[in-house]
Design a protein around this nucleic acid. Sequence first.
RNA 1: GUGGGCGUAGCUCAAUGGGCAGAGCACUGGUCUGUGGAACCAGGUGUUACGGGUUCGAGCCCCGUCGUCCACCCCA
Length: 448
Amino acid sequence: MEVIQPRLPKGMRDILPRQMVLRQYVLGIVERTFAEFGFEPLITPSVELAEILLGKYGAEAEKLIFMVQHRGGKEKLALRYDLSVPLSRVVAQYPDLPKPFRRYQIAPVWRAERPQKGRYREFWQCDADIVGSSSMLADAEIIALIYTVLQRLGFQQFVIRINDRKILSGIGQYSGVPEAQLPELYRTIDKLDKIGIEAVREELQASGLAGQMIDRLLALLQPGKDGQAALDDLRRELMDYPLAQEGIAELTELLSYLPSLGVKDGFYRVDLAMVRGLDYYTGPIYETVVEKPRIGSITGGGRFDGLVGKFSVQSYPATGTTIGIERILDVMEELRMFPSDVGETTVQVLVTVFNADLMHESLRLLTALRSAGLRCELYYDTDPLGTQIRYALKKGIPFVAIVGPDELASAQVTLRNLPLKSQVQVARSEVSEFLRRQFASEATPPPL
RNA sequence: GUGGGCGUAGCUCAAUGGGCAGAGCACUGGUCUGUGGAACCAGGUGUUACGGGUUCGAGCCCCGUCGUCCACCCCA
């Protein structure tokens, strides 16, 4: 019979148990931190009506939306592209949600991109957003949240780049570039840190911008300059541009909150050349980059005050971020950032079976351990102990429990700790408590 | 969507200038009744991605398709 080739759609992956252990460790820290910051969980469908998603992200991004159809379906459907637009729909659809509405959502999104390193067609986003407040405290808390999550995950080196769409718009006005060509200008500016100041100068020249204006723009963007100093320069230079002044005031206020929220210097930077591609951002924007593995941004977000208004006459200001779990996992694996007690499996104990006569002893022990909340697997055959132990080693199960004739006679259980190559005999009545103590401190995130 | 590299066993890779399908690991079954990733035996390890062309003869050369990786665009 012809077999069907086992394979996956382009850009999509299976996540096998060994990877899931690492993933759940990271997700646990992310979710716990979201909850500590006062965000509440939300789930929305993977599929939205196409009209909900279309016209929100910009022409380029919209091409990447996965359309969904089924035979005879009358609704036009699409897989969600991000979590911010569904959130905006939810807020518009349930007007009685108390504001500010603080929700987190950890869920897969889909983008029909060409896959490459750190880029998949299905990946998970961890969003935390605040809807219904225009306070810069909200933006500052989002940045503190990003900082806290990355600290707890053990990131030593990262920079949260901060800019403001209003400042970019002001710079656009100041440059005298026609409205229609502004997106091109922003795209070029965004490349500053990637291709360098001279390459950007050349691109601006090629686009027909006057040399004098190019000099003034590049001077304003000041890649090397300290954030507050750069903002002060801007404030003077863009005196006549109210929108830019608004953005400068926003960032100044936002920055003032960060130290008291525990965000340390050096982990964030005002970067006037950082743009972000999505259309819906309206105020402060932020993204996090790491130097070591060059993998693009690991978080991204900003203020999107106009999005809820697309779904309701009642509009609400909103801000938030997404944390890219796949890229974070890629980085952490590459830098070997996982604590040693994050093992290869979630199974804690293998209960062995000494022989057919003692099978029921093993079953009783198994049941007792499970009742105590320990994660246990039973070995199904009466293979020699060596074979059973090798099985545990291979799967990375840390403890092996043995009930043989000797243990039965003395009402004890032998517990072998495979990583430590040690073993102890514990009274049958105390086995559960003993093992629970062994696992008491496992994989808990370090306090700040 | 644009450009480039690469496609041999499940995985990592060999195969003289065109001349008979290879290794390690993994996997499946078996042997082994008190302790370490074992050994031994047996076994799929495969239309050399697919289709066409050149040739007496193609894993190798040419064309096309598909897949994959990388860069660009953009993004998490």
